[in-house]
Amino acid sequence: MVENRPWANFFAHTVLIIGVALVIFPVYIALVASTQAPGDLLRGTMPLLPGSHGIENYKLMWQSGVSTANSPPAAKMLWNSFVMAMAITVGKLSISLLSAFAIVYFRFRFRMFFFWLIFVTLMLPVEVRIIPTFQVVADLKMLNSFAGLSIPLIASATATFLFRQFFMTIPEEMLEAARVDGAGPLKFFKDILLPLSVTNIAALFVIMFIYGWNQYLWPLLITTDPNYTTIVMGIQRMTAEENPQWHLVMAAVVMAALPPVLVILFMQRLFVKGLTETEK
């Protein structure tokens, strides 16, 4: 588009800059706060320039955590969060890919019934079914374990539905050509469907990872052992103290925000690449 309207340009940029500033400012405050000395944040005026205790705060948080708040070292909590989020993401993706594959490519009895059954579970998020799910997990002796943290969250109607929609856009001739070429169902899935779904997988990976990473209520409920404390729970515990050590809380917050950003940065290459290669 060729356009030359300086005022429109100016206006658009102002709006954008204000929007960006609004989003960035709290992040900046968190960064600044995490570099202050222990009592600095309680003095009433919020410092707007970085302090000199950054390295020391992060080191303390990373290595020893806040034991008074029953919060283990951040390194441990980040690892726990990472394992849980990865288990949920990988589990969700594999299950929904396989179930979408079954629903789209196989003609079994009650196919549409099962599809709707999966679809209906969209109406039942974790919070709604949390008590019965807790009961089941407790009976299966999965409290205080990664299995208990991730398995109940793995089934995903959203991802199944998205993959189903995507598979239906793949021309039927592709399947027929593969059949003539001697590829069985699993080979077709592995050699053709999976490579074609890379873009969708990358996008869903990001969404699912953040979903898993941000889990709060469920881990809070089923883990009591500090060995399984996730970073989100840890932050909550630190702030629930009588005199929260805000500089350490902020250091934990900054560290907790980094992995999702890294995942997005890494996956972005995949889906940007995918989006420009639009070809069936």
Binding site: M174, A177, V180, A183, L196
Partner: peptide
């Protein structure tokens, strides 16, 4: 018999080439 066991090859109207494979791999897949 399955299509693969009939010893036939088919050319489709919309070609049905595998978009993520190179031409070489498209030919070699079968």
């Amino acid at each position: 018999l399955e299509p693969a066991e009939r010893d036939i090859a088919m050319v489709f109207q919309n070609y049905a080439l595998y978009p993520h494979m190179t031409v070489y791999n498209n030919l070699a897949y079968g």
